[in-house]
């Protein structure tokens, strides 16, 4: 993907907001793609974790809003423990989710879950999914 950097595509405010939410410095990313290599969920993601980090570095929240990547992230921290730049990518993914969830939107609808699924799933699965994917 080619990114053209102009005053319109780069958003300093969004970068600052993501840094603040995640507690990370996304500018440290050197685009090595170790995170993508470690990630167990890439088959489900439309953008790889590395690509997300690239867009994050420009604060392109609109473009990221169309992507399912942060929603398919399982918060497994496999990327985090291997990033050579010491970035906690799992926290950046959470910041992207929270950016949406804090506007009172859900990614999954708890009420749409069939009763038999709820009866079968362990409590930690339900609590974890609602914590990560609903507002």
């Amino acid at each position: 993907m080619t990114l053209t950097i102009t005053a319109q595509t780069i958003s300093i405010t969004s970068i600052e907001q993501l840094n603040e939410l995640s507690g990370e410095n996304v500018k440290l990313c050197m685009q090595c793609a170790t995170c993508t290599g470690m990630c167990p969920m890439t088959a489900e993601m439309d953008l790889s974790p590395r690509t997300v980090m690239h867009l994050v570095q420009f604060g392109m929240l609109d473009r990221l809003g169309d992507s399912n990547t942060c929603w398919k992230c399982a918060s497994c921290h496999a990327c985090t423990v291997k990033c050579p730049r010491g970035i906690d990518i799992a926290k950046v993914m959470e910041a992207l989710r929270q950016h949406v969830l804090r506007t009172n939107r859900n990614y999954i609808e708890p009420s749409a879950l069939p009763a038999e699924r709820i009866a079968e799933l362990p409590q930690i699965a339900l609590v974890a999914a609602f914590r990560k994917l609903t507002s």
């Binding site: 167990p40 969920m41 489900e44 929603w71 398919k72 399982a74 918060s75 497994c76 496999a78 990614y107 999954i108 879950l113 699924r117 799933l121 930690i124 699965a125 339900l126 974890a128 999914a129 990560k132 994917l133």
Partner: peptide, 9 residues
């Protein structure tokens, strides 16, 4: 990772 809570998604 086993897929974790993504089983609901």
């Amino acid at each position: 990772c086993c897929g974790s809570y993504q089983v609901l998604n």
